[in-house]
Amino acid sequence: MRGRRRFRTTAAAVALCCAAALAGCTAADGPEAGRPAARPAPRPTPVWDVSPGSLAAVGDSITRAFDACTVLADCPEVSWATGTDAGVNSLALRLLGPAGVAGRSWNLARTGARMAELPEQMTAAAARRPELVTVMMGANDACRATPAEMTPVAAFRASFEAALARLRAGAPKAQVYVSSLPDLRRLWETGRVSPMAGRVWQLGVCGAMLRDPADVSPAAERRRTAVRDRVVAYNEVLAEVCAKDARCRYDGGAVFGFRFDGAQLSPWDFFHPSRDGQARLAELAYRGITREE
Rank of each mutant, 00 (worst) to 15 (best):
T84N: 04
L91V: 13
E117Y: 03
F7S: 04
D74K: 04
G34A: 09
A28F: 07
L16T: 04
T26I: 05
L167C: 02
R259Q: 03
P52Q: 08
P213G: 14
D245Q: 10
G138M: 01
S54Q: 07
D74N: 13
R259W: 02
M136L: 15
A142P: 04
A12W: 13
V176N: 08
G170S: 01
L91Q: 08
R110P: 02
M122G: 00
R211G: 11
R110N: 04
R6H: 09
A226V: 06
G59Y: 11
V71E: 13
M136S: 15
G87V: 03
P218L: 11
M115S: 07
L181T: 11
G288N: 03
W268L: 02
D74G: 02
T82G: 14
T9K: 10
P195Y: 07
V71H: 13
R222T: 10
A27N: 00
A126N: 06
V178P: 06
D183S: 14
Q175K: 12
A116H: 14
D215M: 08
L203E: 13
R247D: 15
D141S: 00
A169T: 05
R35Q: 15
L91I: 13
T290V: 15
A219S: 14
E32D: 12
A15K: 01
I62A: 09
P42C: 11
D261V: 01
M136I: 13
K244R: 14
L95W: 11
C17I: 15
A155I: 10
A165P: 05
E120S: 15
E161Y: 05
A254V: 08
L210V: 09
A68S: 14
A197F: 07
G198V: 08
S61C: 12
M115H: 01
K244M: 00
R104A: 13
A214K: 14
A38G: 10
E117G: 00
V58C: 10
V50S: 06
K173C: 04
G262A: 15
R222V: 04
R39C: 13
S90I: 04
R280F: 06
A15I: 10
F156H: 13
P172R: 11
P182T: 04
A154G: 11
L281Q: 12
F256H: 06
E221W: 08
A109Y: 05
R280N: 09
V255Y: 03
F271L: 15
P213M: 12
L91T: 14
P267N: 10
W80V: 01
